[in-house]
Design a protein around this nucleic acid. Sequence first.
DNA 1: ATAATTTCTAAACCTAACTTTAGGTCAAGC
DNA 2: GCTTGACCTAAAGTTAGGTTTAGAAATTAT
Lengths: 151, 151
Amino acid sequence: MAVSEGLPIGALAGRTGLAVSAIRYYEAQGLLKPWRNAGGQRRYQRADIRRLSFIMIAQQFGLSLPDIREVLASLPNNRTPTPKDWARIGAALRGHLDARIDTLLRLRDNLDGCIGCGCLSLPKCKLYNRDDIAQSKGTGPRYLLGDRPDV
Amino acid sequence: MAVSEGLPIGALAGRTGLAVSAIRYYEAQGLLKPWRNAGGQRRYQRADIRRLSFIMIAQQFGLSLPDIREVLASLPNNRTPTPKDWARIGAALRGHLDARIDTLLRLRDNLDGCIGCGCLSLPKCKLYNRDDIAQSKGTGPRYLLGDRPDV
DNA sequence: ATAATTTCTAAACCTAACTTTAGGTCAAGC
DNA sequence: GCTTGACCTAAAGTTAGGTTTAGAAATTAT
């Protein structure tokens, strides 16, 4: 029960609000690497609470789990991350967020002019510029807007 | 070949950049109602090009297909929609878009203070306010941030 | 010492938004 | 009149991000 024994998965779930199954799933996706105790059960460090919190926030920002794994890869694995480490990573997120906001603002600027005027015809409509929206939101393969300008 | 015979599905796909299979899928979801010719093949009105364009734009704004179906339901079905009809619908989208932008701006305001300082602890972090992000982005059931404040 | 919780793994299931496949029909060009 | 290409339906497959289930083993509580 000493602190050095680490937190079992249920405790981590309780502290983060995540389901136990989600935490195991994140591990399967390479976002987390708990150790195992003598009986084979997962044990976590306290720092993993923050790691999971970060994952949840990054998801809100629209990052996929592979994206997040990459970002987290820049954390030191030989020591517990410091606030400074997290700040560096926060800055990376900020870039993502800024880009998404810009996209939406641009869409909004065009909305009145485009749908508002009823033009909505693909060849001219500004809403169809390919660099909008952070790459293929939504699941499954799909023709992206602007992918087939042969209209 | 007269205009009154309508467009076959491939033509519609060509003009919108959508896959034929996607257009059939939208019909199955109730977003489109082509008529059938003598041989049982789908025939579309020219106005359906705009309808599909609208669907693509609305998706970029984060609306689900059921959401879009509802919005489209307010179009008149006894006549071809006018630019004015589309403008009314554009205004509805605008509300959605504004909300999404507000959310992201709020997240950005908190980012430096929260991740930046390294606090990231659930009970205090402003990023964990439940009204953030337009309801449960991402598929499948999932605990929403803030849903379990019993941390 | 036993009962009640937790945890374990593997595999199946879930949703959204589509695509792919298979086997057959329709329409258009020569 | 026949071949080629477009179209049809129904069902199964795909991806992301998980959840659910089942049966077994470990831990905790009494």
